[in-house]
Amino acid sequence: MDYQPLLLTFKLALVTTMCLLAVGIPLAAWLAKSKSRFKPVAEAVISLPIVLPPSVIGFYLLLAFSPNYHFGQLLESVFDIRLVFSFPGLVLSSMLYSLPFMVQPVQAGLQSLPASLQEASQTLGKSSAQTFFRVLLPNIKPALLTGIVLTFAHTIGEFGLVLMIGGNIPGVTKVASIAIYEQVESLNFAEAHVYAAVLLAISFIILLTVYTVNKRLVKSRWVS
């Protein structure tokens, strides 16, 4: 039994989630307060992965990352980076693929906070950064947790995108969902079953944790 695809799946989900935290929170903060006329465009682009088949995103990213085209060439000649069929390429495409799952809950959380919280913090002499990290973010913990967990779970569930961008390189890009497909194709049902059962159990536990913890977080606001 080869556990590498499972480990790789969780490594990918973890790295993707951490990178998306860094990228998604500022993006959500901008969307939450922006009145720019480009905001609907940005929102539409961010939400695309929800409606598009993963193979569509995978196809365009494959073209973009491929050394045969401009962007891929540029990356390779200037930075010596090849994204196609590599782990960093998987992380980057997973980030795009899961972007709405991080941005939307955080944005909704920030928008649901009364404007007076931010105004009060300003009148108490605090900068925008202090206000954001000490007042706004701590008060949207349930939304943050939802964003983190959905991103993590969504990345675990990737298949089409990984197949297009990463292929099936053991230890580099062969994640559990690909391994299941490969085992089934070679009629190796027992091994496919193990991968599938592990993914099923872990996904369920993750979601159960979110709902339990979120309930407690909401409740803890009422109890000192």
Binding site: P114, E119, Q122, T123, K126, S127
Partner: peptide, 18 residues
């Protein structure tokens, strides 16, 4: 706002719940 010498009491109190 940060540099003005004011205190503001909001209609909804605006206490930080966290």
């Amino acid at each position: 706002a940060q540099k003005r010498s004011i205190g503001f009491v909001f209609q909804d109190f605006a206490l930080f719940p966290n």
